[in-house]
Design a protein around this nucleic acid. Structure first.
Lengths: 329, 329
DNA sequence: CTGTTAGCGCTTTCAT
DNA sequence: ATGAAAGCGCTAACAG
């Protein structure tokens, strides 16, 4: 069923059908009514592809994340999708795995499909976008980075002040009279680096020396948290607070502490990061940092929309995390 | 940069360019090489929209879930996306919220965009697709339902035998000598109904009477599990096993039991469902049922692909869940 | 082996 | 208020 079929059946030209379809230009109310009736009766749906051919847009945007199964990305991507859907865009999801080749492959694919814009979710893209090939690809299209900064023309970002976020956690356990504070660095992204910086700087401000020796590297998982904690209890039995880069890691820390017979938070305090469901499931419930993925998502959509539609002025922005009290501090 | 620009620069016709682009038909190696060089130099990308105009396909499929933030859906959708990406398709995600209007809106949108197929994830779509309007929309395009059954022509499904899954849990706690077994029904989908049936039938087979009175309704969340357990301990202090419809609910059950001073599993055994990260974070770690979302996803993709490409014969299939032992039984 | 031509379904001037 | 015609970028006959 094409616009030609409708035109023929209505005894008018395709231009007229197009006019009633788009409510554009003058058209006699009588003919309009007739055409509309025929449209409905035939259950006609205009071809978005043919429209895209003319308008050079399919009203589609792409979201790229490392892995949508990570709850923090899922929350961000969910909100981005809902917001764009509200605005009449469809959303293509890409799970790049954080790898360079895959990122490039996905980028090429969505650019060939002429998506209107791209949201990169997560600070991994910070590193990835340093690559010349990827940078070239990104330059041809509006891009927003959610939680990271892009050093490129025509691209903007919504940043989360993770340095401040970790400082909130450190200051909080300090206020609770914990002095032997350790940090579990469980990721390798730029955001993770910033968090680590936040930890070191916070300690410095509080007058606690030898910050570097208080950073323990592990992987972001329950098992990562558990293993690091076992080691920590062995090497530094005096530990009184463990600040983590992710809730999931903190959950492992809590398990290990309980198994070691420690009381939380009396013997050792723990903080997570992300204010995720993991924090709430944890027993005792984690004190954590809310880095506000929904807000990041909303602002990213706003930014990308104005970039695409060239409507308003726009600029990058930064979001402040917030401390969420649980039972582990 | 269009195919015309390339043709002009190479001094050939657009057909020749098209031929080298698609590796189709005979073309002189020399001209081929020249064209390819020009293609590369200009960083030419064919317009997928124009191609779609001819082929009537954008090589895109849509995934519809209630909410991608639910880990089980995220796992399923992730695998579906990766598999389709491998096969050269892009994937559009839709978060319908399980609502009728939104589902219809999304369906119309993706059908206008002429997606090649749709994967409906979750048994909620079972009910939704009973609607005449939605059914009509779905009939115009290849559809697969992941975890549910569709009573429609030209549509197939990958089903999970949730009745069997819950029976595994019930039989297992029975084997561990628990007799006062209760079930927390925490959702309202068809899959949840099937699980509940599974519970009732399993009890019957084991000779435990009054199954209906052992079903407690609540909502699928930590809080839902916690509240239901408090009530249960009050009404039936003799309870010795709680089988849950979701891991997240079971996590709440565990919390409530611990707070009530119960030992797990000595006093009360608990089982979850989904084999999710929640089960592993839970302390003690949950015994749970693996309903194999990755396998469901793979089979759904296979099914939809053959439907789209009309290559093989195809048929719906059913997957058997598996018991995963934890520390709560 | 290569070029010409006719669409694909729609929007958008430009006439009338 | 309506229609004719051009064109979006590409593929696929068909003709050389």
């Amino acid at each position: 069923m094409t616009i030609y079929d409708i035109a023929k059946e209505a005894g008018v030209s395709i231009s007229t059908v197009s006019r009633v379809l788009n409510n554009k230009g003058k058209v006699n109310p009588a003919t309009k009514e007739k055409v509309e009736e025929i449209l409905k009766r035939n259950n006609y749906k205009p071809s978005a592809i043919a429209r895209g051919m003319v308008s050079k847009s399919m009203r589609t945007v792409a979201i790229m994340t490392v892995d949508i199964r990570v709850p923090h990305y899922a929350r961000t991507a969910y909100t981005i999708e809902r917001e764009f859907s509200r605005r009449g865009y469809e959303v293509t999801f890409c799970n790049t795995g954080g790898e360079y080749e895959e990122t490039e492959r996905y980028l090429k694919a969505v650019i060939e499909k002429q998506v209107d814009g791209i949201v990169l979710v997560g600070s991994v893209f910070n590193k990835l976008c340093k690559n010349a090939e990827i940078e070239k690809l990104l330059q041809s299209i509006p891009v927003v980075l959610a939680n990271g900064t892009l050093e490129m023309e025509n691209s903007y970002s919504v940043l989360v002040d993770d340095e401040y976020g970790i400082a909130l956690a450190v200051n909080h356990v300090f206020d609770k009279n914990h002095r032997d504070i350790y940090y579990l660095k469980d990721l390798d992204t730029m955001s993770a680096e910033v968090k680590c910086e936040g930890f070191l700087n916070a300690l410095k401000r509080l007058g606690i020396p030898d910050g570097e020796e208080r950073v323990v590297k592990t992987v972001s998982s329950t098992e990562g948290g558990r293993a690091a904690t076992k080691q920590l209890l062995q090497d530094h039995p005096e530990v009184s607070a463990i600040v983590c880069g992710e809730d999931i890691t903190a959950a492992g820390v809590v398990k290990a502490l309980l198994h070691a017979g420690k009381r939380i938070p009396e013997d050792v305090a723990v903080t997570g990061y992300n204010n995720s469901e993991y924090a709430r499931i944890c027993e005792p419930q984690l004190t954590t940092i809310d880095n506000k993925p929904e807000m990041v998502a909303m602002l990213s959509v706003q930014l990308l929309t104005s970039l695409i539609e060239k409507t308003e002025t726009y600029s990058s922005c930064t979001i402040q995390p917030e401390l969420i009290l649980g039972e582990t501090t």
